[in-house]
Nucleic acid binder design. Structure first.
Length: 462
RNA sequence: GGGGGCGUAGAUCAAUUGGUUAGAUCGUUUCCCUGUCACGGAAAAGGUUGCCGGUUCGAGUCCGGUCGCUCCCGCCA
């Protein structure tokens, strides 16, 4: 007999079926025993004589065959999808025994230490809340994919092994064996590749991209996170904003109909207004609720625009505030080329903020190589450094560059907000801890002397 | 790199401000129970109070160190 899912048993009234799963709970009443069987689709109540149930324990994996019967009217459980039926066990087979699990998977699990939850993440993921989070995540990503594909976007994978760049976040580096002494970097974002894909003529690119940064994590930051990354040619800021608003609004409408978006189109606020009025560049625009209690279903998106392009470094030089490949706003192009009024040059950068969290950012890119070179000059790169680090970009810019721009949106943060989670760890299947370790795999870990030798790496004495 | 918080049973916490044998709930084990669904009832097991040292007649409690966990600032184009 073929095994069916618990949720499918509804269709097999008075028929014999086979199901399998984990023993969620056992309620013994002497001569009769009830077992809640949990599988990916939900819970099914099994009924059997005492002696059959006596030899099993919670979290054991079992397979049962038996007849599906309607429950007596008074015994219907409205909380279960299969609450009107139950399975009378004819045969029970233990597929796997289980030790007592180290923490309870009943309830939301917020009060259990994350150290324990992370060490046994595969047990924590049995929890209903996390099952929902992870499957909802997939639904959202699936929605985004089909939305963009219908709009003519092509999803293109870009390399994980790439080149370290000097500015921005610290890179994770990977030693090269074949080029001993040299290192790849894991991508902080597919920024350069997606621009090169515009030069290649794909015009509408997107990717559900993993981005890696070797910086200290927080509740809303992990060493690796997932972005919706996209880039388009022959467009301006309005096109990107329009696309993202349409995407986010339809995503919320389709998957979270109970949520309401406070204002559409999303309000726009300049960086200087935001700093003046809210003292932050990611303001929470949710209207204060009447009763004093925040509405968990309220979503207040906004765009923050008109960021300064440059800021002073600790020394007396300049650095960029967001992205060196951004174009200045058109009216500042002249100042940029002449390196005049550097402090007041505004970038075409736009950030999208949801309930006080930055959930995306992008810009119209600087597609003229002379202007890009000036940016590098302002931030003090020597000609040689520019050639070494960005020579490939400047070279590519010689061969016909369409005006282009795009955005990247942090999906972990977006999902965490939509699912009402405090940290993005709750929407990631296997997250890292607050100090970037994987407690389950015990990573990072030391590598063997042989591996080090092959890579020609000598460890520093402590 | 800097700062804060925490470490007591398998889990989550308590212990009246230093005083008898370190408790509770959940979980676990055994027994009873034919309609439960967080079943119910009875009983039991389970602790080097993270570790080392100090103060004290006496330390889970105070002090120093150490290890571990956690959050925040810096950092994160």
């Amino acid at each position: 007999m073929k095994r069916i899912l618990n949720k499918e048993t509804n269709k097999y009234l008075d028929k014999k079926v086979k199901t399998a799963g984990w023993v969620d709970s056992i309620r013994s009443h002497g001569k009769i025993t009830f077992i809640d069987l949990r599988d990916v689709s939900g819970i099914l109540q099994l009924v059997c004589k005492a002696d059959i149930a006596k030899e099993i324990r919670p979290e054991w994996v079992i397979e049962v065959e038996g007849k599906i019967s309607k429950r007596p009217n008074k015994m219907i459980n409205p909380k279960l999808k299969t609450g009107e039926i139950e399975l009378f066990i004819d045969e029970l087979k233990v597929l796997s025994e289980a030790e007592t699990i180290p923490f309870s998977i009943e309830g939301d699990g917020y009060d259990i230490s994350e150290e324990k939850r992370m060490t046994h993440r595969y047990i924590d993921l049995r929890r209903q809340r996390l099952k929902r989070n992870i499957t909802d995540r997939q639904k959202a990503i699936s929605f985004i994919r089909s939305f963009l594909e219908e709009d003519g976007f092509v999803e293109i994978e870009t390399p994980m092994l790439t080149k370290s760049t000097p500015e921005g976040a610290r890179d994770f580096v990977v030693p090269s064996r074949l080029q001993a002494g040299k290192f790849y970097a894991l991508p902080q974002s597919p920024q350069q590749y997606k621009q090169l894909l515009q030069i290649a003529g794909f015009e509408k690119y997107f990717q559900i991209a993993r981005c890696l940064r070797d910086e200290d994590p927080r509740g809303d930051r992990q060493p690796e996170h997932t972005q919706l990354d996209l880039e388009m040619s022959f467009i301006d800021q309005e096109d990107v904003i329009e696309l993202i608003e349409k995407l986010f609004i339809s995503l919320v409408k389709k998957l979270y109909p109970e949520k309401k978006i406070q204002e559409t189109p999303f309000p726009r606020i300049t960086y200087s207004q935001a700093m003046k009025k809210y003292k932050t560049d990611r303001p929470d625009l949710r209207n204060p609720p009447a009763g004093g209690k925040k509405d968990p279903n309220l979503l207040a998106f906004c765009w923050v625009i008109d960021f300064p392009f440059f800021k002073k470094t600790d020394g007396d030089g300049w650095t960029f505030t967001h992205n060196p490949f951004s174009a200045p706003k058109p009216e500042f192009m002249d100042d940029l080329l002449k390196k005049k009024n550097v402090k007041s040059i505004l970038t075409s950068q736009y950030d999208i903020v949801l309930n006080g969290s930055e959930v995306g950012g992008g810009s119209i890119r600087n597609h003229q190589s002379e202007a890009l070179e000036v940016v590098f000059e302002i931030i003090g790169y020597k000609k040689q450094e520019v050639k070494e680090n960005f020579g490939h970009m400047l070279e590519a810019f010689k061969y016909g560059v369409p005006p282009h721009g795009g955005i990247a949106s942090g999906l972990d943060r977006l999902l965490a907000i939509l699912l009402g989670e405090e940290t993005i760890r709750e929407v990631i299947a296997f997250p890292k801890t607050g100090d970037s370790r994987d407690l389950m795999m015990n990573a990072p870990s030391e590598i063997s002397k042989t591996q080090l030798k092959e890579l020609k790496i000598k460890l520093w004495e402590k």
